[in-house]
Design a protein around this nucleic acid. Structure first.
Lengths: 181, 181
DNA sequence: GGGGCATGTTGACCTCGTCAACATACAGCC
DNA sequence: GGCTGTATGTTGACGAGGTCAACATGCCCC
């Protein structure tokens, strides 16, 4: 429903009729609309997480290449499921309060990224320092790009593939180990 | 009102009473709620643009430093006005339709960034290539960082200043001209 | 067979965006 | 001064939507 008509089209009543039940039925499964949306958002994070992890198969290839591919998959996920992605990050649609489940799901994503970065640090491919901080930097870049693309802030004439590649490459170049200078 | 109670607290009726008028009064000035929010968002872009431009004064200092400061100011703006910033980018809260005024305001920001990047390219401080693409990369990084910080996706124990510095520095390192290698 | 739980239904209430009909007041013109 | 038009504000009403309470129903397990 999100992808069909945007988040605004997701109403408790519409969900009910979509499932052939009454408007009150969803309240037997979720305390309120926010909880339902949080559940959907959490599912999105798990989906994204699985997708990023699946790239592990090609871990044998050039190592930094794997990080690059993760970034690429990240942005591609957002482009394929824009409304879902927006929901995952848009606190606005959800409650003002922190949603522990959401935080946990997003946290899992971050931890995976940190692990990968740590591996590459140990191989000396990217500079040392707090892997968490580096994960945030990389995450910021791909999330920002995904967000700008989704919100149509980027000139549609630009080649998206090139832009994704250039973004991930720039980040990796910036993180490349320069200590042996 | 946005910063006080979140975007959800902004209702036409509340705006009216806040101004001491009736609920219908705002409709004499804006065709609908979306138009009003777009106007607020546009004002936000102008404000942000002005802030980024004001750094020009220190253009005499280390040149790349100016780009770094722009990024820093960008993120800082978002942190100071989180709800406003969210509104500026959150298409969700606004209409599904493209808002030409909003696009123009965001476009002006981009053009300024492109100009600055072009200058630094000419000085040979960052690598050549399409300045627009590089602007997008830089924009993605700061926007992503701002977004993650605002949405509280980043561990509050992390030193925000350090993270901002590291992000901008990584991007600049990644864009640094390596052609004379 | 009966109690309890899970699930679904419906009526009702409140908030909100929005519009139409109506009021008012001020500016500019004769 | 009086008239007229426009800008602005007010109020009633409508429909959509989130939510709750009271009520129904069907199934599992003892």
């Amino acid at each position: 429903m999100i992808s069909e008509g945007g988040a605004a089209s997701v109403t408790m009543r519409a969900i009910g009729s979509r499932l052939g039940v009454s408007r009150g039925a969803p309240y037997r499964h979720f305390p309120d609309k926010t909880a339902l949306l949080v559940a959907v958002a959490v599912a999105g994070f798990k989906r994204l997480n699985r997708r990023l992890g699946s790239g592990d198969a090609g871990a044998s290839s050039s190592s930094v290449e794997r990080l690059r591919r993760m970034g690429e998959q990240y942005v591609r996920f957002a482009l394929e499921h824009p409304a879902h992605y927006r929901l995952m990050y848009g606190k606005e649609a959800l409650a003002r309060q922190d949603q522990p489940e959401l935080r946990k799901a997003a946290g899992a994503l971050l931890e995976n990224l940190i692990d990968v970065i740590r591996v590459h640090q140990q191989r000396g491919e990217i500079e040392g320092g707090d892997p968490r901080a580096q994960a945030y930097v990389a995450w910021s870049a791909v999330h920002g790009l995904a967000s700008l693309l989704i919100e149509k802030q980027i000139d549609p004439n630009v080649d998206v593939d090139d832009l994704i590649r250039q973004t991930t490459q720039t980040i990796l170049d910036g993180m490349r180990d320069r200590s042996p200078d």
